[in-house]
Computed example of a mutant assay.
Amino acid sequence: MDCENCGERKAKITLTEIEENEMRTVNLCSTCATLKGVSVGSGSPPIADLLAHLGGGAGDTLFEAGGEACEYCGTGAAEFRKSGRLGCPQCYVQFDRQLRALLRRVHGAWQHMGKVYVSTALDTDPAHVRLSTLRRRLERAVEIEDFESAADLRDEIHVLTEAS
């Protein structure tokens, strides 16, 4: 496939841009991608980019330079920031506190919550389903400390329970 920008070279990168709520995908050669500001061939893994952009809070203390290293394999801050990978299974135990902080910062929780199945059976009361959904969302909002949303959800639950 040829580059959609210059049409001269083979496209090696697919760039997805979202502007004004409109998504557009463009196939570009390395040169055109570089001109658009996309780093090409940096070999930088996504986790390293994530850590670099986290900024204050948990991102600064996570694997800080000169900090602790894995007692088993010796992986430390520099290696983790460079490769985005831990060295061995023991690293997950050694850096449990830092990894939990990173996951909390990125995902709002350190443990996967998953999706909850809600029955769509005909005999299920829609108000009951709505109420249980709101309660789960409230619980999640409190867990991730989104208190503004939690207050809105609490009020909505109150209105539904008063109507019942």
Rank of each mutant, 00 (worst) to 15 (best):
R105S: 13
T75F: 10
G66P: 00
A48N: 01
L62Y: 07
G108V: 07
D49N: 12
M113L: 11
H53A: 13
C73F: 11
F95I: 04
P89S: 11
P89I: 11
Q111E: 14
G66I: 06
K82V: 07
Y92P: 02
E71R: 13
K82F: 08
G84C: 07
A78N: 14
L103S: 06
Q98F: 03
P89Y: 08
K82E: 15
A109E: 12
G67D: 02
L86N: 08
L86T: 10
A109D: 14
L62A: 15
G76F: 09
R85C: 12
Q98E: 15
Y92D: 03
G57W: 03
L103V: 05
G84Q: 06
Y72E: 15
A69S: 08
G84R: 05
A101F: 02
A109K: 12
F95Q: 00
G76H: 11
C91W: 00
G67Q: 05
Q90M: 13
C73D: 13
D49I: 09
G76S: 15
L50Q: 09
G74K: 12
C70A: 12
F63L: 13
L86D: 07
L62K: 03
Q90R: 14
E68H: 05
G84M: 02
I47G: 01
G59T: 11
C70Y: 03
A78Q: 14
R100C: 03
Q111V: 13
L50R: 03
L54C: 09
R97W: 03
C88R: 12
A77C: 05
D96Y: 00
A65R: 11
V106M: 06
G56L: 05
A52T: 07
L54D: 04
G57V: 03
E79F: 04
C73A: 14
R105Y: 08
A58P: 01
G108R: 07
Q90F: 14
A109C: 12
Q98C: 11
I47V: 15
C70D: 01
R97K: 14
D60S: 14
F95K: 00
G66V: 06
R100S: 12
M113R: 09
H112C: 05
R81L: 02
A48P: 01
G56Y: 04
H53P: 02
E79W: 04
G87E: 00
A69E: 08
C73K: 09
H53G: 08
Y92R: 09
H107V: 04
R81T: 02
I47P: 00
F95E: 00
H107Q: 05
D60M: 14
W110H: 06
Q90N: 15
D96R: 10
L50G: 09
D49V: 10
A48T: 11
R105N: 06
R97C: 03
L103K: 09
P89E: 11
